[in-house]
Computed example of a mutant assay.
Amino acid sequence: MAQRLPPELENKLVRLQTLQAQYNKILQERATVESEIAETQRAIKLIEEAGENAPVYRMEANVMVRVDRAKLLQELKDRLEILELRLQRLKKQEEEIRKQLDTLAKEIRELQTKLALGKQAGAGAS
């Protein structure tokens, strides 16, 4: 017969699973943002290396459209700034959830130890 976990431990385990899911989601989002940052940096570098008079094109609705170099460069730099701010926010969230996960895991281990000791004491009394 399977024993039911104490409600406190069960709640903590559910919370741990929820935090782990949030943590994994943040890690995925961080990887996506880091990839977008690298791509944007490459685009900026290419445009800057192309020179002032080189024509610059953008893909819009499956059509290559010639665009103003300076305007596009500024748009990319603005996008890069936004992405970097987003990355900083994600890193802070990641750190905060990691701390919560560590604390919760410690609490769960302590509860499990108490339960194990209680069972041993109960078994010794029989």
Rank of each mutant, 00 (worst) to 15 (best):
M1A: 12
A2Y: 11
A2I: 04
P6N: 01
E8N: 09
E8S: 14
E10K: 06
K12S: 06
K12V: 07
K12W: 04
L13R: 15
L13P: 12
L16K: 07
Q17T: 05
Q17G: 12
T18I: 14
Q20R: 13
Q20H: 13
A21G: 11
A21V: 05
A21L: 00
Y23H: 11
N24V: 03
N24G: 05
L27V: 05
L27E: 04
Q28A: 06
Q28E: 05
Q28T: 10
E29Y: 02
E29F: 00
E29A: 01
E29P: 03
R30M: 14
A31L: 12
T32Y: 14
S35N: 09
I37S: 00
Q41N: 03
R42W: 00
I44R: 01
I44C: 03
K45F: 06
K45W: 05
I47D: 14
I47Y: 13
I47K: 04
E48A: 09
A50Y: 05
A50I: 11
G51P: 14
E52V: 14
N53K: 05
N53C: 11
A54W: 09
V56S: 04
V56A: 06
Y57A: 10
Y57L: 08
R58D: 01
R58L: 09
M59I: 15
M59D: 11
M59Y: 15
M59N: 11
M59A: 07
E60C: 11
N62K: 15
V63D: 07
V63S: 03
M64T: 00
V65F: 08
V65W: 05
V65D: 09
R66S: 01
D68P: 06
A70S: 07
K71L: 07
L72M: 08
L73T: 11
L73H: 08
L73A: 15
E75R: 08
L76D: 10
L76A: 13
R79M: 12
I82D: 14
Q88I: 09
R89C: 10
R89M: 03
K91L: 04
K92V: 01
K92P: 02
E94N: 03
E94T: 00
E94K: 03
E95S: 12
E96K: 04
I97V: 07
R98P: 00
K99Y: 02
K99W: 10
Q100W: 08
Q100Y: 07
L101H: 03
L101E: 12
T103H: 02
L104H: 01
L104P: 00
A105M: 08
A105V: 05
A105R: 02
K106V: 05
E107M: 07
I108E: 01
I108S: 10
I108F: 06
E110P: 00
E110L: 06
L111C: 06
Q112E: 11
Q112D: 09
T113A: 09
K114P: 03
L115G: 08
A116N: 14
A116C: 12
L117E: 07
L117N: 09
G118K: 01
K119W: 02
K119E: 00
Q120G: 00
Q120W: 15
A121I: 11
A121R: 15
G122W: 15
A123E: 07
A123D: 05
A123V: 03
G124A: 09
S126Q: 13
S126L: 01
